[in-house]
Structures are given as structure tokens and as C-alpha cells.
Amino acid sequence: ATNIVGKVKWYNSTKNFGFIEQDNGGKDVFVHKSAVDAAGLHSLEEGQDVIFDLEEKQGKAYAVNLRIK
């Protein structure tokens, strides 16, 4: 899925991951530091509006192509 809109539920910059809540009511999506770095960001803030693509690997969904809304 592409261009999914959501809000950062939480992001832990020490542990380098967090979760994004989808605006469409879907399951929360894992986001890793690598996606944050690829977006040219240092971190994510709770409540921040983002747009992302959804990829699945080994049955787990995660956010890629992250951008600030």
C-alpha cells in the first residue's frame, strides 16, 4: 500500500523504532530508524502527521518512504 496517512503514536530514538497510527483505522505500523534516516529526519515526534508506504516482510508490516505531511 502507498501514500498512507497517519500520526506518530510514539518513537524511541534510543531504541531506534516506534509506531505510526494509521488514520484509516488499520493496525499500528512499525517504523525503524532506517526509514527515519532515509527521510532525512533525525527523529519523529509523538502526534506528528506523516505519509508512508507499507511493506511486509516475514508477515510483519512496516513503514517505508516516510515523509512529513
Rank of each mutant, 00 (worst) to 15 (best):
R67N: 08
S34G: 12
G6R: 01
F52A: 03
N3H: 06
V29Q: 02
A63K: 00
G26C: 05
G47I: 03
V50D: 00
D49V: 14
V64M: 14
K27V: 10
T14P: 07
G6A: 05
V5H: 13
I20A: 01
A38Y: 06
I51Q: 13
I4K: 14
V50E: 00
V31F: 07
K69V: 07
N16W: 10
N16C: 05
Y11Q: 01
K69R: 14
V5I: 14
G59W: 06
K69A: 08
A61G: 07
I68K: 15
N16F: 07
Q48G: 05
V31M: 07
Q22E: 06
I4S: 05
I20M: 05
A39N: 06
K27H: 13
L54M: 13
L66D: 00
T14H: 13
F19V: 07
G47C: 03
G47R: 11
A63D: 00
K9I: 08
A38W: 12
H32A: 06
N16A: 11
K9C: 03
E55H: 07
N16H: 15
L66N: 00
E56F: 13
K33L: 05
G25P: 08
K69W: 07
I4P: 02
A63W: 00
A63G: 07
A39Y: 03
I68W: 09
G40R: 12
W10H: 04
L66S: 00
V8W: 03
K69F: 09
F30A: 03
L66C: 02
G6K: 01
F52D: 00
K57P: 06
V29H: 10
Q48C: 04
F30Y: 10
S43P: 09
V8T: 03
D49G: 13
T14R: 11
L66H: 00
N16Q: 12
G47P: 02
A39D: 02
V8S: 01
D53R: 03
Q58L: 12
S13N: 09
E46G: 08
V36C: 03
F19G: 01
T2D: 05
L44H: 01
L44Y: 02
A38R: 08
I4D: 02
F17R: 02
G40Q: 11
Q58H: 12
Y11K: 01
A1D: 10
W10Y: 06
F17N: 02
D23Q: 13
T2H: 13
L54T: 14
S43Q: 14
L41R: 11
D28T: 06
I51L: 12
G26D: 15
Q48F: 10
N65H: 13
G18P: 00
S34F: 14
S34L: 12
S13F: 14
A38K: 10
N65C: 03
E55R: 15
V64P: 00
F17Y: 10
R67I: 13
N12D: 07
R67K: 10
K15I: 10
A63N: 00
V36S: 02
V8Q: 01
I51P: 00
S13A: 11
K57I: 08
V5T: 05
K57D: 12
V8K: 00
T2N: 07
Q22K: 09
Y11G: 01
D23W: 07
G18C: 02
L66P: 02
Q48L: 09
E45A: 11
F52Y: 13
N65W: 03
V29I: 15
G40I: 05
K33Y: 11
F52R: 00
V31L: 07
Q22F: 07
K7C: 03
I51E: 12
G59P: 03
D28N: 06
A1L: 12
V29R: 05
G40T: 05
E56I: 10
F19D: 00
E45K: 13
A63M: 02
K7Y: 15
Q48H: 09
G6P: 00
G6Y: 01
F17W: 09
K60Y: 08
D49Q: 09
G25D: 10
I4A: 07
I20L: 07
W10P: 00
D37Y: 12
W10R: 04
S13C: 04
T14W: 10
N3G: 10
K27C: 04
Q58S: 08
R67C: 04
T14G: 15
K15N: 11
K57H: 10
D23R: 08
D23S: 15
E21D: 06
D49F: 15
E46S: 11
H42E: 14
V31P: 00
S13T: 14
S43N: 15
I20R: 00
G40W: 14
V50A: 05
N12W: 10
V5L: 10
F19Y: 05
A1R: 07
L54Y: 11
A63T: 03
L41C: 03
I51D: 04
A38V: 11
E55P: 02
K7G: 02
A63Q: 00
G18L: 02
L54H: 07
K33D: 02
S43H: 13
L41Y: 13
K57R: 07
G25H: 07
A35Y: 09
A39E: 03
A39W: 03
K57F: 15
G40S: 10
E55K: 11
K27F: 09
K15W: 09
T14S: 11
E56W: 11
K9H: 04
K9P: 00
I4V: 11
G59I: 05
L54P: 01
A63H: 00
E45C: 04
D49E: 12
L41M: 13
I51C: 04
Y11L: 03
L66G: 00
L41W: 06
Q48T: 14
K60I: 10
I4Q: 12
F19A: 02
N65A: 07
L44S: 01
L44Q: 01
T14M: 14
A35V: 15
E55Q: 13
N16E: 09
G40E: 08
I4E: 07
I4T: 06
N65I: 03
